[in-house]
Amino acid sequence: MRRMDLAIPGTPKGTAWWDELPALPNSPGAYRWFYADVTAGEYSAVFIFMVGSLFSPRYSVGARRGALPLEHCAVNFALYHRSTRRRWVLSEYPRAAVQVQQEGRVLHIGRSVLEYGLDGTVRMEVDERCAPFGGEVRARLVLEPQAAAAEEVQLVPELPHFWRVLAPRAKARLEVFSEGVASEGIGYHDSNHGAELLGARLPGWHWARVHGPEETVVDYHLPGGVAPLRVTAGVLGTKAERRPLLAEARDTRLTGWGLRVPAQLYAGNQAVGEPRLLESSPFYARVEARRDGLDVMGEVADFRRFHSPLIRWMAHFRTRVERPA
């Protein structure tokens, strides 16, 4: 695979983003997560490695008392077949470790690993149990980026929350050994990080990425009249920009939990279709739509809701917690 020459701002010239893991957070309330999704035939899957887990009720409470993000790391994996969930993993750990190897840089959380290879490949391997008390899950995703990373962007001016699309389009191979799944398709990879708890000042967002035959477009919508962000990746390169607000808001609908989600998912101004709910909770929804060669995956999050005592209590039932040894 051709090695793309795109440096991280502030690193020596010629240093590509995969030559080192982005810095991990080390202050109370801070977080960083590494997200990837894949569409492979009738399957889709999501992998997330989190340091300072946004899904952790323990971190939600503990961060206000000085708890550190490395004390609340997590691995999330979900497998879907024809938009129906087949497996769900959310495991929380009290530590993570970074290892420098000859082949690349590796983040370890429990038995699961995220590796940035020196040839540009991204490998995520999950070796887990379904939450909270389910069976074993072993899965692997390998991404070979086909478009350059975007520049890092600040989600909201003056707030310490940042987003960077690292691999907007990638050749992907998904293997779920415990399910007998092996399929190739198209993948996506990004990273978010911030210096304070989500929901403290940034209440939430919704975003969606659209894979088309030749181009990927990612739209990130933010509350409070903040202009949305767009990343476009295709034959003309990768571009991140802030877009003007729509003159008219697009329609939404309420989930059974009362969370407002888009009524339609779009590729530009073209409606792809009504989103199918892959995940639905009081504070978070994951959605998907496919039509005529277009594939959309997106999320809606209301982090203010998550910090309520009732919803934090409910979150315990979707999480497996590994206690300190």
Rank of each mutant, 00 (worst) to 15 (best):
D5H: 12
G10P: 08
P12K: 09
G14L: 01
G14Q: 05
W17F: 07
L21C: 07
A30R: 09
Y31R: 03
W33K: 07
F34G: 06
V38K: 10
G41R: 04
V46G: 06
F49D: 14
M50D: 14
R58C: 01
R58P: 05
A63L: 02
A63W: 12
G66K: 07
L68Q: 14
P69S: 08
E71D: 14
H72D: 11
H72K: 02
C73E: 15
A78F: 00
L79S: 13
H81W: 11
T84V: 05
T84W: 01
T84H: 06
R86K: 14
E92F: 05
A96W: 03
Q99L: 04
Q102K: 14
G104F: 12
I109E: 04
Y116I: 02
D119L: 00
R123E: 15
M124H: 09
M124N: 13
M124C: 10
M124G: 08
G134Y: 11
Q146Y: 06
Q154N: 10
E158Y: 07
E158W: 09
R164T: 11
K171I: 00
L174K: 07
V176W: 08
G180Y: 11
G180L: 04
I186D: 13
I186E: 15
H193P: 01
L198T: 14
R201L: 01
G204A: 06
W207N: 06
T216I: 00
V218H: 07
H221L: 05
P223S: 13
P223Y: 15
G225C: 03
G225I: 07
L229V: 10
R230T: 03
V231C: 00
G234H: 03
L236E: 15
E241H: 01
R242N: 02
P244W: 03
R250N: 12
R253T: 14
R253G: 05
L259R: 13
V261S: 05
Q264C: 03
A267N: 09
A271M: 05
V272W: 07
A285V: 09
V287H: 13
E288R: 05
R290Q: 13
L294T: 11
D295K: 09
E299M: 05
A301E: 14
F303I: 13
R305P: 05
F306I: 02
L310Q: 11
I311M: 04
T319N: 03
R320F: 06
A325Q: 13
A325L: 07
